[in-house]
């Protein structure tokens, strides 16, 4: 913990993770009802989690169709898991993220992903920069910049920035320390700042 007095109170990662696991799961009651076959609960879970799973997969894989395939598979497993879910072992949302990440890893491994050979097609200060201010073009440029990141950096920024997971949850999902997540985040943001610099200026 960091204080204004400059003191640093170190909190062991294991201690924090233990506290994290003991934290109340906001989805606990919902999952229990899903496990009992409650149709309303099923719809609620889909409304609540499907956009998150789809967004996570789309940003990691850069492909909408593959993202939907991943999201669908996450839910197939979720239905099975809900019937056996035991509260207190962690948040169901974190479990779903873990499943989604593993499915994405499988697809990335199969794809034999490499870094883009060319830098993203980002606008320079030429007169053509104007057209990139159109929202779709801007979104596409940002997506390309995200896809250009090394996988682990992309993963860190997707989990923490877009999925709004805590650094502790992200570290646990990625199987690394909180410090490692922070390092990945800093590097990712630095890379994005450079690759999106021209967009930032023109927008």
């Amino acid at each position: 913990m960091w204080t204004l007095a400059g003191e640093r109170t170190s909190v062991g990662t294991d201690d924090v993770r233990s506290l994290n696991r003991a934290a109340v799961d906001p989805d606990e009651d919902l999952v229990r009802r899903v496990g009992q076959g409650d149709q309303l609960a099923i719809r609620t879970l889909v409304n609540r989690k499907l956009p998150r799973m789809t967004a996570l997969a789309r940003r990691l894989l850069g492909d909408a169709q593959e993202a939907e395939d991943v999201a669908q598979e996450v839910f197939v497993r979720a239905w099975r898991q809900a019937a056996n879910w035991r509260p207190g072992g962690g948040k169901f949302d974190t479990w779903m993220h873990r499943v989604a990440l593993n499915l994405c890893y499988d697809r990335l491994r199969k794809r034999r992903e490499t870094l883009m050979a060319e830098p993203p097609d980002i606008a320079d200060s030429s007169p053509n920069a104007e057209h990139l201010l159109q929202r779709e073009d801007l979104a596409a440029a940002i997506d390309r910049a995200l896809q250009a990141l090394p996988v682990r950096q992309r993963e860190a920024i997707v989990l923490c920035h877009y999925q709004e997971l805590s650094n502790i949850d992200a570290a646990e999902l990625m199987g690394v320390s909180v410090e490692a997540v922070e390092s990945l985040l800093s590097r990712a943001r630095r890379s994005l700042r450079v690759s999106l610099a021209d967009l930032s200026r023109t927008s």
Binding site: L50, P51, T54, A55, R58, R59, A64, E68, A71, Q72, R135, L138, A139, I142, D143, L146, H161, Y162, R189, L192, R193, L196, L199, S200, S203
Partner: peptide, 17 residues
Amino acid sequence: LDQLLAFAPDQPPSQAL
């Protein structure tokens, strides 16, 4: 940078999905 990243918002899942 945060504002730029927000320009790539979540796309809703398809109705078919």
